[in-house]
Amino acid sequence: MSTMTMSRSNLWEVTSRTIVYAAIGAALYGVLSLFSFLLPGTTNVSIRPAFSLVAFFGYAFGPIVGLFVGFVGNSIGDQLNGYGFLTYWNWSLANGFVGFVAGLAPLYLASMMDGPISRRALGGAIAGVVGSVIGFLFVFSDIWVGGSSFDSLLTTGYVPVVIADVITVAILVPILVYAWEPVKEQLGR
């Protein structure tokens, strides 16, 4: 599977490369999820640099990898923090959907994925933002799971998380794309 120039047909291919990249992304997300900080002036908006990996792995290696990195990586992060692998399963799944939507970038950002590296980096940021806005809609499943109201989920869940994660992916995903592209060519990917 090649990266960032993948065709629509191999978006859904699951090979050893898919599995290993997904596992590495999820493990990295888990390890780095121990590092976060509060957005100044807020009480519950936490910036998680590791989240940029979800969008990056989705964008670079496809929707299957993105889904896995988001879902399993967030679950592993919860596991390492001692909350349990599945306790907040719907939030983990929402993270997975972010990676999935970012991984669908060849379907909606095709023109940006074949251009110069600056366009591909910008494409990564856009895919991450689109993924965050759409993927985190799944946290509204807490209306049924936890009995929360739409208003409280919107104000204390969806909006803060999307703001924090949009800032994160907009800054870090392009940096990761810039770093990965030359290495990818060296490796012949």
Binding site: L39, L53, L176
Partner: peptide, 27 residues
């Protein structure tokens, strides 16, 4: 927050790229 995010890039980037590049043996 932006300065701190940019400050973590020198950690995130080599860690991620080395991990992906090093995955070839496993693959």
């Amino acid at each position: 927050p932006i300065a701190r995010l940019r400050g973590i890039a020198p950690l995130l980037t080599p860690l991620t790229v080395n991990a992906i590049a090093g995955a070839e043996d496993t693959i």
